[in-house]
Amino acid sequence: MATAVPAPKPNVHAHTRYWVVPAIRAIVALAAGAIITFTRDAHTATFGLIVFGAFAIVDGLATGILSALLAGRRVTRTLFAVQGAIGVIAGVLALVLSGSGLGLFLYLVTVWAALTGFLELYNGIRERSRDAAARDWLITGAMTAVLALVLLFAPADAILAIGLFGAWAVIVGVFQAIGAATLRSAAHTPSRRAESGS
């Protein structure tokens, strides 16, 4: 019986503090969406690559590093580390090659969205009965994968492509902010119950 007691500790740690990850990701996504929405003459390939590059690097670092520290299971942490690395690589390429035109923007964002969307969707599916954040991973992953499909079949137009990325960033940012608040509230519920029972 004594060996069963330590097992819940990693999961409790993940649930009590993991809300920080979607909160930071929400801020990054909303910032990218706001910059695209409110910047005049923003819909050029160079501008799109710079905004996407900065977003992908910061989001990738937040996803990879913070999930490695706060997520529950080892496989989950590994998958998020891979997802974060993909974001950082895509972001660095976007910034280094920011003058390469619309073709590179479409290619980078589509590949990034397909790979990271699939990984987050997979994490959500495999953890749906074990982790409170799994539903959010599933939905965010699905929305990101949809972005990849839309960009793949959309006309090669800078205004449309960058606008689609900006719209995705706003929607995902709002969703992750709500998810962060929900996870934070759920994490504090057991402690309130414990305090009231003592």
Rank of each mutant, 00 (worst) to 15 (best):
A32Y: 05
A32G: 09
G33V: 00
G33P: 02
A34C: 11
I35H: 04
I35L: 12
I36V: 12
I36W: 01
T37M: 11
T37F: 08
T37G: 13
T37D: 11
T37Q: 14
T37P: 08
F38Q: 12
F38Y: 15
F38P: 08
F38I: 07
T39N: 10
T39Q: 08
T39D: 07
D41S: 14
A42W: 04
A42I: 03
A42H: 05
A42Y: 07
A42E: 04
H43Q: 11
H43K: 10
T44S: 12
T44E: 05
A45H: 02
A45P: 05
A45I: 01
F47W: 12
G48D: 00
L49W: 00
L49E: 01
L49K: 07
L49G: 01
I50Q: 13
I50F: 09
I50L: 14
V51I: 09
V51W: 01
V51Q: 02
F52M: 10
F52I: 05
F52A: 08
A54W: 14
A54D: 12
F55V: 06
A56L: 01
A56T: 01
A56F: 04
I57H: 04
I57Q: 04
I57M: 13
V58P: 07
D59S: 10
D59C: 10
D59P: 09
D59Q: 14
G60Y: 02
G60D: 00
G60T: 05
A62K: 06
A62L: 07
T63Y: 14
T63Q: 14
G64M: 04
I65M: 10
I65N: 05
L66A: 07
L66F: 09
L66V: 06
L66H: 07
S67G: 06
S67P: 01
A68C: 10
A68F: 12
A68P: 08
L69T: 09
L69A: 15
L70N: 01
A71S: 06
A71L: 02
R73K: 15
R73C: 00
R73Q: 08
R74H: 12
T76K: 11
R77M: 04
R77N: 03
R77K: 12
T78G: 14
T78L: 15
T78N: 14
L79H: 09
L79F: 14
L79P: 11
L79D: 11
L79S: 13
